[in-house]
Design a protein around this nucleic acid. Structure first.
Lengths: 191, 191
DNA sequence: AAATTTGTAGAGTGTTTAGTCAGTCTAATG
DNA sequence: CATTAGACTGACTAAACACTCTACAAATTT
């Protein structure tokens, strides 16, 4: 494993446990099994490391969701696919997800260009817009829909992490809560 | 205004802007218009200050919600009252709410006894349990219901903060999203 | 094989930090 | 008025910190 990756893994672990400023670069280097100077060879400053780690981690999550979310081609199916895969990823990458949460509520967030951070949402946004036009989804602002969806994902993840369910039970809860979510945002067919 | 309060206000402002470890105690004292030593007269360590500030802030929010949430005496009315007042408080106390969020995703959270933090939820929990028994609310674990409700509150707050709506528009969105939430968790009456 | 670039090391540096301490000020009490 | 106790001060300190620098090793290019 190359040293850059070792540094990432060590930083991730320590940041989640002690916070950004609570973790000295020397500890990161030590945990990574790397000299102090080596860390600064790869990342000019500690802030650069933090931001690079966030982009890398968020990118991995986005890629996973993009690659594992096609169940069926309906809007509901695609949305469900993204909901499930985001939560599966979060359950399998607890440290990474906690790090993302921590970063997002930290003052570091302002240092990231938000456009680049959210371009992965574009396909989803287009689908939601189409869903509104086709009267599948309630006529709400797309931003608001995204907010409702993603906050339920974040909240549910915390619920799953704080409880010790079996894999099967977890999957069932994830699926059930998606149905609740869908019920909330979709329009009932006129009968 | 007494110095303890001045220190709280200065710390709140700086923590939200620069993070916990990004804010030196000397800056807090300076911003509060107080000598360095005074800070340590009130709070033995910086950690003590952070934790005391969190308990104080969370307490204020809980009290506000408890005192301003009675609309009508039905389960739906009480829940709506809490939903509305939590969001109104968050809109009027943006710094405080951001601080709570930041604290909750930080490693400091583990330093707080969770029972004492959540006892204010007990009345709500009892009502939800009764709601389930009375077949007003879907038969879901109470923890899960709480998670869904509170994550929607947190998410919606971010949505409102990131957009610049008028007060009236804000209130309308808050009310509308409560209806969505209620639709999601309530049982339809059998017709 | 020589030259050059790139990766790695770890001791060293100047600064910043949380927390201390010795003592002053204020206001209440006897 | 004298005494006392708690609030308050800010200079001080020991430790910790982000980052630098010099040196050497390994890989890559010429």
């Amino acid at each position: 494993m190359d040293k850059r990756t070792q540094i990432f893994e060590a930083a991730l672990k320590l940041f989640v446990e002690f916070g950004f400023h609570g973790t000295p670069t020397s500890k990161i280097a030590q945990e990574a099994g790397v000299a102090n100077g080596t860390l600064f060879h790869y990342f000019p400053t500690k802030d650069d490391l933090i931001i690079a780690l966030f982009k890398d981690t968020k990118g991995k999550m986005n890629n996973y969701v993009a690659d594992n979310s096609v169940i069926e081609n309906s809007l509901k199916g695609i949305l469900k696919g993204q909901y499930l895969s985001a939560l599966y990823w979060a359950m399998d990458n607890k440290l990474e997800f906690r790090f993302i949460e921590q970063f997002k509520t930290s003052p570091y967030l302002t240092k990231i260009v938000s456009e680049e951070m959210e371009k992965h949402l574009n396909p989803l946004i287009e689908m939601l817009q189409k869903g509104v036009i086709d009267r599948i989804i309630k006529d709400l602002p797309i931003d608001l829909l995204l907010t409702i969806i993603s906050s339920q994902i974040y909240g549910l993840n915390n619920y799953l992490v704080n409880n010790d369910f079996s894999k099967a039970k977890q999957h069932q809860i994830i699926s059930d809560t998606f149905d609740l979510l869908w019920e909330m945002i979709s329009l009932k067919a006129v009968e």
